[in-house]
Simulated assay, not measured.
Amino acid sequence: MYQSLDQFPKNWIFKRQDPKVMPEDLQAIRLLSEERAAQIWRDYVSDGQVHPDHFTANDWLNKDAAKVTDGKLQWEKVWDSEQSALPDAVLEHFASWGEDTTVFFCCHSDVVFELPWGVFQRCWKAFLFLDNGPVLVGKKKKHAAQFHSNGWMNLLLRVV
């Protein structure tokens, strides 16, 4: 179900001093096996596309019903700053999630990370070295977000 983070080719994102991922948080970050990642991707992100670059109008992320009013936000300015917390609008969007809510940071159908929401909140800057369209979803939750390499993100509501 899981594979070692050491097997992840870009594992350096979790070993940097800035942003620093604390050892206890690192232990809570799990890289799913390719089979389990594909299942989570199909169930939560897309059953037709394997990478964010290939999303179509048929994928829920691109449907009008998924878009949150005023949900297009700039994440990169906060990422580049000394501020460690996620932007306020992001925290408000996910306010119903508890610290222990299981979240999936979905890069593509073969690379999905599982971790608690509280850990993601502390380590989000490390994850956004992987900014080529990843989707953040909560297990059995409707709130989601997609991060884009142009420094913008979309706050979303999962519709299936």
Results as ranks from 00 to 15, higher is better:
Asp64Ala: 10
Gln146Trp: 03
His93Cys: 05
Asn150Trp: 01
Val159His: 15
His51Asp: 15
Leu91Gln: 15
Asp70Gln: 12
Trp60Cys: 00
Lys20Phe: 15
Gly118Glu: 07
Trp75Phe: 08
Glu99Val: 00
Ala28His: 05
Leu5Glu: 05
Ala85Pro: 01
Gln17Pro: 01
Ala145His: 12
Leu128Thr: 13
Val112Lys: 09
Asp80Thr: 02
Trp75Arg: 07
Phe14Lys: 11
Ala65Trp: 03
Val112Gly: 07
Asp43Asn: 14
Glu24Gln: 11
Ser149Thr: 03
Asp6Tyr: 06
Gln3Trp: 00
Lys142Thr: 08
Glu24Ser: 09
Phe147Leu: 06
Leu128Asp: 07
Val103Trp: 11
Pro134Ala: 02
Trp75Lys: 03
Trp152Met: 09
Thr56Asn: 08
Phe147His: 10
Ala57Trp: 06
Ala89Phe: 00
Met22Trp: 13
Val90Arg: 02
Pro19His: 02
Leu155Asn: 08
Gly98Met: 12
Asp18Tyr: 14
Leu32Ile: 04
Pro52Asn: 13
Val78Tyr: 08
Pro116Lys: 06
His93Trp: 06
Ala57Leu: 13
Trp60Lys: 10
Val137His: 10
Ala38Met: 06
Phe127Ser: 04
Leu32Pro: 02
Gln74Asp: 14
Val112Met: 03
Met153Tyr: 09
His108Cys: 04
Leu26Phe: 09
Cys123Met: 04
His93Asp: 06
Leu86Cys: 05
Glu24His: 13
Ala38Pro: 03
Lys141Leu: 01
Leu26Ile: 00
Gln49Leu: 03
Gly151Ala: 01
Lys20Pro: 01
Lys140Gly: 01
Val119Trp: 05
Asp88Ser: 11
Gly48Ile: 09
Lys63Met: 13
Pro87Gly: 00
Arg30Val: 01
Gln146Pro: 04
Phe55Ala: 04
Lys125Ala: 03
Ile29Val: 08
His143Arg: 15
Glu24Asp: 13
Leu73Val: 14
Ala37Thr: 05
Lys63Thr: 09
Ser4Asp: 15
Phe105Arg: 04
Arg16Phe: 06
Leu128Trp: 13
Met1Tyr: 08
Glu114Val: 00
Asp70Glu: 14
Arg42Ser: 09
Ser4Pro: 03
Gln7Gly: 06
Phe104Asn: 08
Gln74Trp: 08
Lys67Glu: 05
Gln121Glu: 08
Ala126Pro: 12
Glu92Arg: 15
Lys15Met: 04
Val78Phe: 07
Trp75Thr: 09
Phe113Asn: 10
Leu130Glu: 15
Lys140Thr: 13
Arg122Tyr: 06
Cys106Pro: 07
His148Tyr: 15
Phe113Ile: 10
Leu61Ser: 04
Val78Gly: 03
Leu130Ser: 05
Trp60Ser: 01
Gln27Ser: 13
Ala66Met: 06
